[in-house]
Simulated assay, not measured.
Amino acid sequence: MIVSMFGPESIWSEPLQLDQNVTVTGLSPLYPEVHCDSNGTICQFVTGEAEINAACSMTALLLSHKFDFRKTYFMIAGIAGINPFEGTLGSVGLAQFAVQVALAYELDARQIPSNWTTGYWLQGTNQPGDPPNPDDIYGTEVFELNTNLRQKAFEFTKGVELNDTASAAAYRARFNYAPANQPPSVFFGDVATSDVYFAGSDLAEAFGNITLQWTNNTGHYALTAQEDNASFEAMVRADRAGLMDFSRVILMRTASDFDRAPPNLTELYAFEYNQGGFPPSIANILIAGQPIVEGIIANWDSEFEQGIAPQANWSYNADDLHTLAQKKMAATRRRMTTVPLY
């Protein structure tokens, strides 16, 4: 099941012959159908943009009785912003973590204390840099994917020739460091989820630090998108209900724009200027994604039907103590035992 987020990412029907349309109640009114090939081996649908649409559409799909997802591999395949210290326009990132960076406290940057570097800090804490507070965990802040499956996906992309354009190359040349000024490639990088379409090195640095906090200093903020944590929460709930296997999920994002301006330019420039990364980012969804889809199918009987075992100590929600839900329940029990009874 290939998951797209908006219309321009839905480029799979002709190459993969997805000519069978299945209407599913509860999908986005703009994208009410799942598109499948003739024998139901490959399907694709569009969630709609941002967290609310993604959560609603993914839930509707997973609860539909028209499909059996118990052995299905899901690949989220869409465009994203890119951290120039991790990748460049057109690059393809395969993620281990998705972090809901904007689920936080915020104080306008013009009014923060003089010794603070950002107006974002974790809920239930006192200042930027404080570790997560178990009492204020929502359970959607971070999701960890199966890195052994990610490695398999990466192997399928070896040798692909990614799309690039003269305009994207000209824009990336404005950066005086790598990998920003290098040609696109397939790499490992984590995704920050935020409904706010942000730009600027200060915000990017703040969200990079939040990514480190939620991943015990193992995640690297490389890409930014709107939907992934919302889709993953629906998937985790479906996994726990026996409807799907969350260890069979791949997150692939392609870079359409830098999350900050080139050196010596105002950060507003990142919004105002056409960076040229949109066309290659769309093209590279298919260029990198199709070999992954075909590789899983070609090796189904020998390897993928039984599933790819995840890494040691893997959990759906991964922070420094691994399972957010368990931490929240423990904190709730502590509060309940200390509340006076009258």
Rank of each mutant, 00 (worst) to 15 (best):
D190T: 08
G7H: 09
L321E: 15
S57A: 05
I137E: 13
T140L: 03
A104L: 00
V101C: 14
A180P: 08
A238R: 11
V22T: 15
V3M: 10
D130A: 11
Q226G: 14
G139I: 03
N126Q: 15
T193I: 07
T41V: 08
G87V: 02
A204K: 06
Q275N: 07
Y171M: 01
K66H: 06
Q17R: 11
D301S: 14
K328L: 15
L62F: 08
S194V: 06
K66N: 15
T88R: 04
F143E: 04
T59N: 14
S91D: 10
I137P: 11
T332S: 12
E86R: 14
I112A: 10
Y105M: 08
N181I: 05
A169H: 11
D259T: 02
S57I: 01
Q275E: 13
I76H: 09
S64L: 04
E9V: 05
R333M: 08
S57R: 05
I79T: 09
C56F: 15
E205V: 01
I11R: 10
V249P: 10
F69V: 04
E272W: 07
A283M: 02
P310V: 10
S256H: 02
R248W: 04
H65C: 11
T147I: 09
R335A: 11
A169D: 12
M58S: 03
S28I: 06
V3W: 03
D245Y: 07
D108Q: 12
I282E: 00
R174M: 13
Q127F: 04
D37V: 06
A261E: 01
L149Q: 13
F188I: 12
D245W: 01
H35N: 12
G307N: 08
A54Y: 01
T25S: 13
N216W: 03
G87N: 08
S167T: 11
W300T: 14
P291Y: 02
R110M: 07
Q182R: 12
D202T: 01
A238L: 10
N133Y: 00
V186K: 04
W12V: 13
I297H: 12
F271W: 07
L27T: 03
S38F: 03
W314K: 04
D301R: 13
S91R: 04
L61T: 00
K152N: 15
K327W: 03
M58P: 06
G242T: 05
H35I: 05
A283L: 10
V160L: 02
Y269C: 08
A330C: 07
G119F: 05
G242N: 01
L203R: 04
L103F: 10
I292K: 11
P184R: 09
G40K: 05
T72H: 13
T140H: 02
F278R: 06
D135W: 01
E305A: 15
L30P: 04
M252C: 12
I210M: 14
F74T: 01
F187Y: 05
A309T: 13
A192S: 13
Q123K: 14
